[in-house]
Design a protein around this nucleic acid. Sequence first.
DNA 1: CTGTGTGCAAACTCTTTGCATAAGT
DNA 2: ACTTATGCAAAGAGTTTGCACACAG
Lengths: 136, 136
Amino acid sequence: MVLTTSEIEKLLDNAKLRHTKQRTQLAKMLFKAENRHFTAEQLHKEAQIAGHTISLATIYNTLHQFRRAGLLRQVIVEPGKVYFDTNTEPHHHFYIEDDGELLDVERNKVKISTLPEIPKDCNIQEMDVIIRLRKK
Amino acid sequence: MVLTTSEIEKLLDNAKLRHTKQRTQLAKMLFKAENRHFTAEQLHKEAQIAGHTISLATIYNTLHQFRRAGLLRQVIVEPGKVYFDTNTEPHHHFYIEDDGELLDVERNKVKISTLPEIPKDCNIQEMDVIIRLRKK
DNA sequence: CTGTGTGCAAACTCTTTGCATAAGT
DNA sequence: ACTTATGCAAAGAGTTTGCACACAG
């Protein structure tokens, strides 16, 4: 996203979320830089290293609030671990299994020319393409 | 798969797994019918309804043994839940979010004409396409 | 017999929840 | 003041593991 501090404040306003210390700190960590992928645990560690006081529970709460506000997306690539992605545009992923790293793949880099017939009475909600990689 | 009892016995032989009561019962539940998708929990319930005596731990152990033997595949579509799939051919999935149901999509029904550049020093391990559906 | 498999319960990991306290507006 | 957010610890879901006993070869 790469937003400025004042843009981040607008983001919170739009989401009708109070500008608390923790929320603002997390928002800055997430949206001041390029798109990123992370787990709650990773973000927690990172916040602590940055010297912020924030509990893991608050990280989870905040991430879900951001997700509901459309600022984050969940990516499921491994059992028992939820990744979050600051890129909310439709796109795909590389997943490097060796070290659990997620990389964005722009949507137009994967051309899907044929789609299967969708079961009647269903709508497509989303389409995930995960290309699993192993290091040589 | 739709195998006969004797084919299932060969399956276990090839995987170098003893023909124990529980293992054989599970193998029959899984491979005597068409391809299916299920969680360990679901399979456990089903086994109990069928009157089999088998613990959840043994279900997990057996599923992982089958997976190592290449008889099953894992599919990750939801946080905190692992689905298994008896279809080990490369293929894709519909996931009906409303009721947690997985459906196979044959590989040739999804034509991918362009692929992104793979990071150097990596190989494609697998490619998952999950089409998430919602009921109207 | 010998070694592997099984069931149970306990442990573990990740995530969510309840509740008292703290902070925002 | 009033309301919402936070932190902690406890609870929860799904899965894995350790160990004594049971069973297959």
